[in-house]
Design a protein around this nucleic acid. Structure first.
Lengths: 260, 260
DNA sequence: ACCTGAACACCGTTCAAGT
DNA sequence: ACCTGAACACCGTTCAAGT
């Protein structure tokens, strides 16, 4: 979390962009002051809400009731306020989720990674996965981008650096990072959705339909595996898959020879 | 699309499951009759809507207005009907989306795949990706499951079969399939979200925040790449990544030696 | 400056009633 | 059997007004 030393000029007032307000939090951040420090100027009504309080309440809802219950209205209720009061501290729901992710990543301990580059690439990728596995509610937000939350940048940096030290060019290292990121995002999305549906106790109905279609003549392999499918499929193979992917990515350049 | 020869007993009337209705379409399917064939019994009011008409209208909305505009109400409007009329032909929105996927997969030509197993695994995986890349609106539904739509089962069958022919055990082949599927799902999800946001013309604001945090001292690799990031990141590396993953997965068993 | 209430423009789905 | 209208229980967000 470097305090942004050089920040690009605020482009929000440009034509077509109708979000004139900067949240209170952003203004404070610019002056490097906490609410307590600030003494200058006239004070309006003292704030009942704060971004911190909002985020804490949101996290509580997430933990106790699940992501599907986190709405601006529900959150306001939790704070004995109105939905609109929140918009004074947070631009919109997306920003709220992003801030929650940021908070989560900050709390996550900055692991010591192995020195050997292949191991480091694997360990960093695993850390990326683990951080997000703990806050799966945010998967949808993540999906929107490949450059991660600021607080998780150290992982991406390590992944790219390890890739380069393994003999990849910088471009190849970015591409390797992206392949791993896609795998991670896919695994998490599917895992989360499975758990969400599992919570509803119901097996998806089209699942049965698919199994019913598995005639041994047309689908010999799948028909043979149908009985064990759920069992095989339940095993957590994330790490195994990650290692295979990393080796596949590194072997393309003969970089693998450097490794263990 | 095998007509389901053995279908598990309908468990829907069990305790707690409150979906007594079977849609008209399902009933017909059971008797193996098309609407035209059916002559017996009293006919009630002739149907104005049909599943076919509903799916066609839904597809039109998807194509012309985008997935975010497909709602039951909008769809009913398109058919000059009411939202509730739809529920006579389709259980819920999820089923509607699943039927759309099924329809799409059916229309997709059943490719001739290479005989050589590694190439076949790659080609089948690519086909899976390509089918879904054309109907990205459904990514969210896909995410819920790893056993695909009935009409795409031939691809999964081929992937598993090719894996086994490459020397993997059946369990390993399923696991390989899942790794590839996670990669595919992740790639598609992120691609779709990017396009969806790109359509809104706005660069995500937290993107700038992340870049601003990229001090060369703390993040040397990322800082050096920042200028080219968008450019590198835009390149479509799906196929490259797929090949690397396949090779990584196969190399774990010495199966790679069999290949080309 | 900070917050509220009412309103806008939506969702998916249920239920009782109509023909 | 097929469809309708009204209603339920929600969304995120805007806007004008209050203190």
């Amino acid at each position: 979390m470097t305090p942004a030393s050089s920040r690009p000029p605020d482009a929000r007032e440009e034509a077509g962009d109708r979000r004139p307000l900067r949240t209170r939090h952003e203004q404070q951040e610019d002056r490097g002051m906490s609410p307590q420090t600030r003494r200058t100027g006239r004070t309006g009504r003292p704030p009942r809400l704060s971004q911190e309080a909002i985020l804490t309440a949101a996290q509580r809802i997430l933990d106790e009731e699940g992501p599907e219950h986190l709405s601006m209205r529900r959150l306001a209720q939790e704070l004995s306020s109105t939905a609109m009061a929140l918009y004074h501290h947070v631009r919109d729901k997306d920003e709220l989720l992003l801030l929650l992710l940021e908070r989560h990543a900050q709390r996550f301990p900055r692991l010591r990674l192995p020195a050997e580059p292949r191991d480091r690439l694997i360990a960093a990728s695993q850390a990326l996965h683990d951080i997000l596995a703990e806050c799966p509610w945010i998967v949808e937000v993540l999906a929107s981008d490949d450059l991660m939350a600021v607080s998780a940048l150290w992982i991406v940096e390590n992944m790219i650096d390890a890739g380069i030290e393994c003999g990849l060019s910088p471009e190849e290292a970015v591409y390797a990072y992206r392949v791993i990121w896609y795998y991670t995002a896919g695994e998490l999305t599917i895992r989360v959705n499975r758990e969400r549906h599992h919570a509803g106790l119901e097996r998806p109905p089209h699942r049965d339909k698919a199994f019913a279609a598995l005639t041994p003549e047309e689908f010999p392999r799948l028909a043979a595996l149908a009985g064990q499918w759920d069992e095989i499929t339940t095993r957590d193979t994330h790490h195994e898959g990650l290692v295979a992917i990393v080796d596949g990515l590194l072997s393309r350049t003969g970089a693998a020879r450097k490794a263990t």
